[in-house]
Write a protein that binds this DNA or RNA. Structure first.
Length: 105
DNA sequence: TGTTTGACGGACA
DNA sequence: CTGTCCGCCAAAC
C-alpha cells in the first residue's frame, strides 16, 4: 500500500520541513542547501515550489530561505524583509550577507 | 503531447 | 560586477 512510486517532490517534503524548522532565528539558509540536506542535491527548484505551496499561516521559518547569492527571490519580498529585519538580519538591496548569516548545521 | 514557467544553482564570458 | 546557457523537475498551459 505504501506507494513505491512517489515523486521526488513528495519524498523531499518530510526531511525538508525538518531541516527548515531547524534553521535558527537570525540565520538564513539557501534553497540549494536545503535540497542537499534533505537528500536531494540539484533540486533547489523543487524546494522553492514546495515553499510556495505552504499555507500562509505556516509556522515554518520560510523567510529564512534565500538564494545562493543571498538574494531575496520570494514573490512578496517586502514581507520577507520585514521578518528578517525583526530577527536583526540586515537586508540591503534585496540581499543579505551569507558570509554573516548563513546557517551551517 | 510539446512548450513554457518558476521562491534555483553553477559554470562561464 | 552583469548576462547567458544549461541542468533540474513538476505544474501549468
Amino acid at each position: 500500500m505504501t506507494q513505491p512510486l512517489m515523486t521526488a517532490t513528495q519524498r523531499l517534503q518530510e526531511p525538508l520541513w525538518q531541516w527548515l524548522n531547524a534553521v535558527p532565528a537570525g540565520r538564513v539558509i539557501t534553497y540549494g542547501q536545503l535540497a542537499r540536506l534533505a537528500g536531494y542535491p540539484q533540486q533547489a527548484r523543487l524546494v522553492g515550489r514546495m515553499l510556495a505551496d505552504l499555507p500562509p499561516d505556516t509556522r515554518l521559518p520560510w523567510h529564512r530561505v534565500v538564494n545562493a547569492q543571498g538574494r531575496i527571490t520570494h514573490p512578496d519580498a517586502a514581507r520577507q524583509v520585514t521578518r528578517l529585519s525583526d530577527e536583526d538580519i540586515h537586508v540591503t538591496q534585496g540581499r543579505v550577507s551569507l558570509r554573516h548569516y548563513q546557517w551551517q548545521p
